[in-house]
Computed example of a mutant assay.
Amino acid sequence: MAMERQQSSRDITVVLDGFSYLECPRWRDGRLWVSDFYTNQVVATDGRGGTDVVAEVPNQPAGLGFLPDGRALIASMRDHRILVRDGSGGLSVHADLSDAVSGMLNDMVVDHRGRAYVGNFGFDLMGGAPLRYTTLARVDPDGTVTTVAEDLGFPNGMVILPEGVLVVAETFAGRLTAFDIDEEGGLGNRRVWAQFGRPPQTDDVAQAVEELDVAPDGICADAEGAVWVADALHARVLRVGEGGAVLEEVPTGTGVFACMLGGDDGRTLFLCTAPSFAEHERRAAREAELRAVRVEVPHDGLP
């Protein structure tokens, strides 16, 4: 649908800098956890400049989440595993998704029962392979892996709304797609939650990038049921209502690839920014920043 673009001027501050490529931010117990792809680290910050390295993930960390007992789950991208971090900081394998995915692991959301919904690239994005749609997997608390959705155009950021609805960003389809979560963790009643223009009708990534009105990457939800969307191609975050109405647009001045509401009152929108997303440009550079902007409506849902 056509977007009603309402740009707003907000003060954006730099919280942290000097990183490679930040993704998958999560607010937890007074700190923001975030994955830095190419230093292979998960970092936690109080949002005021203090940082701790909370995990070293040699095969590149991505999606983050937390089990009901507080232990962290970390998606290890290149070896298709979900790791669990114990109370002392040690890592072990929680689940191996090698037989269930066709590309590197991506973002993840963990529900209140400890079930993790995990996306994957579906194809070798950084290697120049043709675009290929892919699946969404569920990892149960005992490590069992189940494919719960198919035919997704690069499943990326995810939220679980309070009413038990999973919303997933399909980056290369230019949309947010919703599912109802049943008691067993299955996904049903698939529908488009927000469509941003016409989905590209090509498997050529460069052409698809040119055709996308919005490339939804990381997302988070607020207490009015709106979803903040990091637009990976157009240096902005969008606040979107169900149906696709753009309630607010905040230009970021540089690439933004994930966002998370947090802070003491849930009204700080943290932004993972970098000049670009291409691995060959980000791996050796240290230009990524964690930024923040204040908003009116606080966080809700998961993560």
Rank of each mutant, 00 (worst) to 15 (best):
A116C: 06
T39L: 10
L166G: 04
A100C: 08
A215S: 14
N120A: 12
V295Y: 07
T268G: 06
V167R: 05
V227D: 00
D107K: 12
F121P: 00
R191D: 00
V256P: 06
S9H: 08
T45H: 13
G47E: 09
G47N: 08
S76L: 05
V167K: 07
L166Q: 05
V229F: 01
D142Y: 05
A288H: 14
D79F: 13
P130C: 12
G30S: 13
Q41K: 15
A284I: 01
R31H: 13
I74P: 13
M1C: 08
L290H: 03
E242S: 10
R31Y: 06
P61K: 01
S8C: 02
T252R: 07
T146Q: 09
H234C: 03
A278S: 13
G253C: 11
D17M: 05
R267H: 00
A226D: 14
G174V: 03
R115V: 00
L233C: 07
R113V: 00
V139W: 08
I160M: 06
G70Q: 10
L83T: 12
P58C: 06
L97R: 04
R81N: 05
G255Y: 15
W33V: 04
L247C: 08
G70I: 09
D69G: 05
R239C: 07
R132S: 12
M158T: 06
G18I: 13
Q6F: 02
G157E: 13
P200S: 09
P155T: 07
T254N: 03
P58G: 06
F196L: 03
G243R: 10
G174F: 02
V43N: 11
F19A: 14
N40D: 14
D231C: 10
L97Y: 03
F179N: 05
R286F: 13
E242Y: 11
P130T: 14
R138Q: 05
D29R: 15
L16H: 15
G70L: 11
A173D: 08
V240G: 07
Y38F: 15
G186S: 08
D96A: 10
A285T: 12
D36H: 13
H80M: 04
P216D: 10
D52Y: 04
L16V: 05
G18S: 13
E211M: 15
E242M: 04
V205S: 10
D111K: 12
L105R: 07
A292Q: 04
G186L: 01
G244I: 00
V167Q: 04
L212W: 09
H80S: 12
R175I: 02
D182I: 10
R10G: 01
V297G: 04
L67W: 07
L261V: 09
T202A: 05
N120F: 01
T135M: 03
V229P: 04
S102H: 07
C24I: 03
M3P: 00
F179L: 01
S98E: 06
G114C: 07
V237S: 02
